[in-house]
């Protein structure tokens, strides 16, 4: 028994040594990246996960090791935001990244205390000299999924479900309606705001009401509430109804998977938070960190857009979306970002 145990211990030691030899990571710790999640967690399939993927991509390319050159801190409640951001500041991290409007106040408070640290906030604007605010042209991405919706609808009625009614979500709304209108002005866009980002039951009910009234494609910009809309679309498709839902922020194709392996998610409007994180790390590394500036990632930067794989879209539709994208990038189409601009656009 003793012999077996000592053999085991020795073999573990040897394996440990071998593993040590296989070190393929960089030793250079002169530049370190910290990322603070919001309460959604590192794998929320949304902003936190996306941003972290951007950090990881950069790290892989530079042979960084997690915990050495880059790491994240999980926030379990909102009260953790300030201590977590400060923790990276105290450790003299070179760039500290956080994603989401939830970080607005905490970053405004923490950034001035660490003037030598570069802070990046994604999808929110914080006016501090050492904070770079990365925002997205959501209306442009929404325009593209509007084109997809207009091509998919047979009833000439499409729906939009917003989370909470404020300027940001209105950008999704305006862009989507403009995209639909550009393809076919006779298509009706029905909208409803849930007043909540975290109520799937409510999202399901709104979607159900819309589908019952003849809407056959719904675009949701409603986070967890939108999960209910995806559930409703799945159920109806399985019962043989030809309805679709369009995802938001990340590629939600997997979320809409049904028993037959197909998905009820037509396509998704992606905010490329990974691109935002990657670009900001690169800028900070090169000493060109845009502190105090607002950087808007557009279609031209690939900061927004539809996923690369769209099994539910025809090739012709993907091609058409590509054409619209080129027109928007070239400035031939100016996508409305507010309801007033939308009214002008439709005229």
């Amino acid at each position: 028994m003793k012999k077996a145990l000592s053999l085991l211990l020795v073999s573990i030691l040897v394996i440990g040594l071998l593993a040590g030899c296989a070190e393929k990571y960089s030793e250079d710790v002169s530049f370190r990246v910290g990322f603070v999640t919001d309460t959604g967690g590192i794998d929320d399939k949304s902003f936190n996960q996306g941003t972290w993927e951007g950090v990881q991509k950069y790290a892989e390319e530079n042979k960084w090791k997690e915990g050495r050159q880059y790491k994240y801190i999980q926030s379990n409640e909102e009260a953790d935001y300030i201590p977590n951001l400060s923790a990276f500041g105290d450790d003299n991290y070179n760039i500290v990244i956080a994603a989401g409007f939830l970080f607005g106040d905490s970053m405004t408070e923490v950034a001035p205390q660490y003037p030598d640290t570069n802070f990046t906030i994604i999808d929110m604007v914080v006016a501090q000299p050492n904070v770079a605010s990365v925002v997205f042209a959501e209306e442009q991405g929404s325009f593209l999924v509007g084109v997809a919706a207009a091509r998919a609808t047979k009833t000439k009625k499409v729906g939009f479900i917003g989370g909470v009614d404020f300027d940001l979500i209105r950008k999704f709304h305006a862009g989507f309606a403009a995209g639909v209108h550009s393809v076919d002005p006779t298509i009706e866009v029905i909208d409803q705001y849930a007043g909540d980002f975290g109520n799937p039951g409510l999202g399901q009910q709104i979607a159900s009401t819309m589908y019952d009234q003849g809407v056959d494609v719904i675009y949701h910009a409603a986070g967890g509430t939108g999960n209910g809309a995806i559930n409703e679309a799945k159920g109806r498709r399985e019962n043989g109804e030809d309805v679709w839902v369009i995802g938001v922020d990340k590629d939600q194709y997997e979320d809409g998977k049904m028993a037959d392996g197909k998905s009820a998610v037509l396509t998704s409007m992606m905010k490329r938070v990974d691109v935002a994180a990657y670009n900001m790390i690169q800028a900070a590394k090169d000493g060109k960190f845009p502190g105090g500036e607002i950087i808007a990632l557009t279609l031209a930067d690939d900061g927004v857009g539809i996923p690369e794989e769209n099994p539910n879209l025809d090739k012709a539709v993907v091609k058409e979306i590509e054409d619209y994208k080129k027109k928007i990038v070239a400035g031939e189409i100016k996508v409305p970002a507010t309801m007033d601009e939308l009214a002008d656009f439709i005229k």
């Binding site: 967690g41 590192i42 929320d44 399939k45 159920g235 399985e238 019962n239 979320d255």
Partner: peptide, 24 residues
Amino acid sequence: TIYLCQIIFNQQRTRTFLYGIKKQ
């Protein structure tokens, strides 16, 4: 529940299920 999700699915939520309770 979130802790167990992390252990079982390695994310802070369960995987999405294919079969739920359907309207009928």
